[in-house]
Amino acid sequence: MNSAVATVGKKKTRITQSIVLIGIIVAICAVTSIVNPRFLRIQNIINIFQQISILGIVACGIGMLLVAGQIDISVGSQISLMGVIIGMVIEKLVGKPIPGVQAWQAALAIPLAVVATLVLGFLMGLLNGIVVIKSRAASFIITLGFMTAYHGAALLTSGGYGYSLYGHFELLGRGRVLNIIPIPILFFLGVVLITYLVLKYFRYGRFLYAIGGNRKAAYVSGINTNRITIIAYVVTGMCSALAALILISRVGSATATTGDAYGLDALAGVIVGGVALSGGRGNALNIFLGVMLIGLISNALIIMTIDPYMRDVIIGLIIIIAVTIAQYTSERE
């Protein structure tokens, strides 16, 4: 009897990928702190985390979707639309001079805005998922359509103007626990932790990998591939909802484009984190590191007083390099 099945795990690919990311992050930190020592101050580090919190929440949703071999590029417009709804609800109910606001209005507005956002996030995810499945078309194309539609809906809702929260609803985006740790960071870390647990310890996460790895084989193995996929879109929509709430709370106002950049930036983070576009690969740690890298680059450029417009150029190049490297390594296998 050949007992060749050893129990010792060999996690070569994942560790090397994470290590490369950590290496790059350390290198950027080193260079930046030499150029400007203020980079390493606690306050700046907290800043960086705060800046990537929203991005990270969105990235976790997209990341899980990508693991299942799907993509949703409408996420940015989803956030903008929900942002406008939040702004509208709050401005309509409690906006304008504070003395004129009745107590019931103030008590109602924020819960209403929160519930409306979560419901809307749920519904947009559900709609995206169902249409992607039923149309049998590429998810990129379908969600491209939704991106435009949600953008239009946001413009319609805002009437072309923005809404201001007049200082209401500040806690979620600007509050700090113990006066030190910003609340968004806690949500961010919480979502990353949940993503980690789902992908590693839940049957659902296992099915995401299976579907992303080989949809046909997953179906033949008895997995309800359609349902799992639709749920992944819903989860992404819910992550967008949470991101929208934190974003609008932090910014204090909402226009039809407030959240637009988050969709593609989050996607960039996920891809840089080594989640394969073809599906079946990726994990929460790498999504976290990918987002870190994107956030760090933005911060480092500011700290080093480089033209902030350079940021997009650099991030674009990084995506291209990351995908190219991933392509070559997977081909070699």
Binding site: Y201, Y204, G213, N214, A217, S221, G280
Partner: peptide
């Protein structure tokens, strides 16, 4: 390769897949 295996995933995940699909447990 086309419809039997998740080629990019480990052996144990492939082996347990159909049984997992059958089970109703949430956690692995």
């Amino acid at each position: 390769k086309d419809s039997g295996l998740i080629l990019g995933r480990p052996i144990f995940e492939n082996v347990s897949l159909a049984r997992l699909a059958k089970s109703l447990r949430l956690l692995l």
